[in-house]
Write a protein that binds this DNA or RNA. Structure first.
Lengths: 242, 242
DNA sequence: CGACAGATTGACGCGCCTCAAGGTACGTGG
DNA sequence: CCACGTACCTTGAGGCGCGTCAATCTGTCG
């Protein structure tokens, strides 16, 4: 549960997509020690109201951020995949304003926030990478406001799938590969402001229209161009190309 | 149009709410020169696709960020008020992924982005303030995803009004003061994912329920506690208390 | 085999949208 | 001073997209 692990490799790879790291930056990052932990599905990595003093790198598995309204309905506001740092978000704020929960079994690596801050102070390139990462997250949040506020159900679901596929591609997984979605239909509903029932119907429509296929538990993008078109998807907001 | 102005006072006041600035930080900020410009309502301060190399301080008036879907529908993803820095958001990214547009006539002050970056490098406290500001913006985006995704129309409109009032309070304007809303009902609709027609009806409902009053063009919060309750509003996400 | 999470499907209703017709306030030019 | 345009607000009637409720099915893990 608390073995030191090679999360730093993953982190270097991620930050390298954001800025051009110097060899000294990379050397420094390699020194970073992550306390590795295996957690079950639905495990809370951060809870609303927590004081955050350590930071979590998602090494394997998937996670989602969510907030609740008074009557208990849930809204997922972001999802995360291997390589994502989950709590830079909160490190400078007093208390977590939302929950972060795994959506599959997962492996995470913990680092002390103060240690990361020290790195940022000593290495401007690393600080810039952290800042860009936070700004890209913010850009994604804006797209989600648009998605939930102004697109119809079919487009919304398709858009969320497109973002998932595009971000997977950035970490090296081809859109054409079959995939097991790390979300239930209810979670897709929580992310798109719909009910699981309606998500189910929209997935059926997207399937009959030939945008993607379903084989027992797994899904496969049947026509990536068509799905993007149906989704009104423009990846510019992901700021992936450096 | 390009007179140097005292925007730095406003900026010092804003950053002081985010971190404890040292006297040297304040002295340095006072040196900052803003090119002041008066702009009309509906003026674009940033356009989607722009390369951003200068940064805009909103000195007087109001502005909103918006994105468009393919069929031309608009979604406002954030609004801004005097004292807000509008483009720290974009300064580290290649291209603007959304528009920023005034919603009233306004006065803004421009600074060079590189100059600001220099400040951040030389003054860790200022860098931290910028970072916290960006993280708070992100927190507000998350709340908007929740608002648009999971609350009904009346609650949504009330919530947006609450955020407006709470943020005004942070810059020194009492919730009890009558106010002329710097948004049209159509803009409130664009911010909440509703049509202007339905916003109109919801405002009527909130009025008949006694949450607020309307006197000719101006509005007044009649019952701040009641409005917050109707809105499911918890200001924690604004991270205003340091 | 039983228990349980998740997917699927149908019937029905409501919240919000659409379309359309004024109304009001204000600025602008004759 | 009035005529007119423009931007915004207001109100009503009707319709549709998505939610609600509920039953059934499937796969998986003990």
């Amino acid at each position: 549960m608390t073995t030191v692990c090679a999360g730093s490799t993953l982190l270097v790879r991620k930050l390298s997509r954001l800025v051009a790291l110097g060899t000294d930056d990379i050397a420094a990052l390699s020194e970073l020690e992550f306390q590795s932990e295996q957690v079950a599905n639905h495990h809370y990595l951060v809870r609303e109201g927590d004081r955050v003093n350590r930071c979590c790198l998602l090494i394997d598995g998937y996670a989602a951020r969510n907030k609740l309204v008074r009557n208990g309905q849930r809204q997922i506001v972001a999802f995360h995949m291997p390589g994502d740092m989950l709590d830079l978000q909160h490190s400078l704020l007093n208390r977590a304003d939302h929950n972060v929960q795994t959506t599959t079994a997962a492996t995470v690596g913990w680092v002390d926030v103060e240690k990361l801050k020290g790195f940022a102070l000593a290495h401007p390139k690393i600080a810039e990478a952290f800042a860009r990462d936070a700004l890209i997250d913010a850009s994604i949040f804006r797209e989600w406001v648009l998605n939930v506020g102004r697109r119809d159900a079919k487009t919304r679901v398709a858009h969320m799938l497109c973002e998932f596929v595009a971000r997977r591609e950035a970490i090296g997984i081809s859109p054409a590969d079959p995939m097991v979605l790390p979300f239930t239909q209810e979670q897709i509903g929580d992310a798109t402001g719909l009910t699981s029932v309606h998500v189910n119907r929209m997935l059926r429509v997207l399937t009959t229209e030939g945008a993607f296929e379903r084989l027992n538990g797994a899904y496969k993008i049947a026509d990536w161009q068509k799905l993007k078109r149906l989704a009104d998807f423009d990846p510019a907001y992901l700021h992936q190309a450096a």
